[in-house]
């Protein structure tokens, strides 16, 4: 059942990305191009998403457990460390080069453009490289996703 729910969520998520224009690298790069003809749409997409998610999040978390799973797994860490900052920096450079981030890239696989397939393949390679470089950090994140992990103990976002 969690699989069916996740499939439908992925589907709706892709439709939201498409509606908001986030599957268009031209639009994303237009947002990042603050010195050019600036496109504000990414701010509006984030505002819409944060308004809905932020408003309803406390009410969902008031429930004892999710509808289909045993526990909620929401990251509890609040400390800002070097990994977080360097990771975000590296991620941002890649994002600025292609105008693609993971959600829109997977959604855009349906375009049939070979460039997207190259990007997604390289993205998986980058994730695998991180697991090789930091097996400990990666394993900690994976362990926190096991069902028996307590609410609020997951270590990644």
């Amino acid at each position: 059942m969690t699989g069916v729910a996740a499939f439908l969520v992925g589907l709706a998520f892709a439709l939201g990305l498409g509606l908001g224009g986030m599957t268009q690298p031209a639009r994303v790069l237009g947002f990042l191009d603050v010195a050019g003809d600036w496109d504000p749409s990414l701010v509006l997409v984030m505002a819409g998403a944060i308004a809905v998610y932020g408003a309803a999040f406390p009410f969902v978390m008031r429930r004892r457990r999710p509808l289909l799973a045993a526990t909620f797994q929401v990251p509890a860490r609040r400390d800002v460390d070097g990994r977080l900052v360097v990771g975000a920096l590296v991620f941002g450079v890649g994002w600025g080069l292609a105008g693609l981030c993971p959600g829109p890239a997977l959604t855009a696989l349906a375009s049939g453009d070979p460039g997207v397939a190259i990007f997604v393949g390289a993205m998986l390679g980058g994730m695998a490289a991180h697991r090789l470089a930091e097996p400990r950090a990666a394993a900690t994140a994976a362990r926190a996703h096991r069902p028996e992990a307590r609410t609020g103990r997951s270590r990644d976002a």
Partner: peptide, 22 residues
């Protein structure tokens, strides 16, 4: 853009409510 964002937010919320995941 706003509506697309709202759909994204609602989808993410559904994953939290159903599966308890981010």
């Amino acid at each position: 853009a706003l509506l697309g964002g709202a759909v994204i937010g609602a989808s993410a919320l559904a994953l939290l409510a159903a599966n308890g995941r981010i």
